[in-house]
Nucleic acid binder design. Structure first.
Lengths: 229, 229
DNA sequence: AGTTTTTTATGTTTTACAGCACAAAGATAC
DNA sequence: GTATCTTTGTGCTGTAAAACATAAAAAACT
């Protein structure tokens, strides 16, 4: 059983800037639930009703495109808010979210969040900052995914996962275990090509693979491949 | 000569929600200048110092990618704010901006804007809303540009320009006159292919071309091509 | 344990698109 | 008014990556 009192202290910024009364209201209205691996969290077209906060686990935000091919547009790491863009834009979701691995997620009704933001300029600035950073990343991603060649895109995805989720103590082994299909959906390529190109990277001793475990052997080389396209 | 007093009334949201004192401060610190066609407004890597507002004209936001190929990520129509993402993210610009056609732009120091936002929840919400909408568009664009085929991407760009800048009284002729290279940079393709595919659309009587003037003849067909990829 | 389903792997074929090359038409400069 | 530069237009060639086809391996289910 998850205690909401313990959860509140983890919420970024909110635990820092809210008044006592606001804290109590958040605690009162917040819900917490666990998601199984690959379990959907929300879907394209859904009406956004809550601000979500990933307390533990890993989440992917993706968009289904032409011919059922999905593109992962963003990944979420604990402890981070997500799922608020659509609500702030007053739109339905244009993306879907699913758990990469078993995850625990807190949700706070969006109406309450909007009140808090109105009352609290620090919190407003916090979310503006996050949105602005995300938009910059998204624009960069658009260009990278469209202009780079397969090897460049895959190299970038590997580095992106390292950036996003970090590594084991060895500093080399990714702590996320994506399927080949996930790698393809990150890198805008078919699963076949993700498999093929990963194999090529192993051959060239840039990485090693152990099932879904990816270990980076030559990060500078990957960076170069990513940059060159 | 442009009178700043006349300009203030045009500024979205600000002219509506600011206090008298804040209005005066904005008027005092605001600058207005004109840009010639294709003149750069800011460049990738620049430090953002001002909130910009396009008073008249048209602006493209783009990013240079691999091999000098540019990708237009967003377009701005009057009267609309732009150039604030980087400042809000506390980053340097990751994109560049240039005038599509002769344009007049007001600029307000970003420090002042941040003060206004802190004092004024309505204004904060306004910018959050804009950022959230832009992020959704950017994510959608990522998928469209990566997954659709050339014809789909070009059809989408034509519809995108219609959405963004509108049409003449006939409801069919775009009010923006992009070069073939602009069309290519919007649609993630080479200039040759933009030319070729535009010609194909003319052949198929989906559009007519008169120099850079694009007239849509069969919008439903273009929408279908855009959707199908 | 055995059966089915999913994931990974690899080879082959096809094609969409980039990359030239070149020419004509327009725009800009001198 | 001629020369130069830019933009537009078309044809041809090469290739990167998708599409398709199997098969082995791993995982999930009975």
């Amino acid at each position: 059983m998850i205690k909401k009192e313990d959860v509140f202290g983890k919420l970024p910024e909110m635990s820092r800037v809210l008044t006592i009364e606001d804290r109590e209201q958040v605690l009162d209205e917040m819900k917490v639930r666990a998601y199984r691996k690959n379990e959907p969290i929300y879907s394209e077209g859904d009406v956004p009703s809550h601000l979500l906060c990933l307390l533990s686990g890993k989440v992917k935000i993706y968009k289904d495109g032409v011919g059922g091919r999905a593109q992962i547009v963003r990944v979420i790491n604990a402890v981070e808010y997500f799922g608020y863009r659509a609500a702030f834009a007053e739109e339905n979701y244009v993306t879907a979210a699913a758990a990469f691995e078993p995850s625990v997620i807190a949700s706070i009704p969006i109406g309450l969040v909007r009140q808090l933001i109105t009352r609290n300029p620090q919190l407003a600035w916090f979310f503006m900052h996050r949105l602005a950073v995300a938009l910059g990343r998204s624009d960069a991603r658009t260009v990278n995914l469209t202009q780079k060649h397969i090897r460049g895109r895959l190299a970038e995805s590997i580095l992106f996962l390292k950036e996003s989720y970090g590594t084991d103590e060895d500093g080399m082994t990714l702590t996320v275990y994506p399927s080949r299909e996930d790698m393809a959906n990150l890198s805008n390529m078919t699963t076949s090509n993700a498999i093929r190109t990963l194999s090529a990277f192993v051959q060239e001793e840039l990485i090693t693979l152990d099932g879904r475990k990816i270990k980076i052997l030559d990060e500078p080389a990957l960076q170069k491949i990513s940059r060159m396209g």
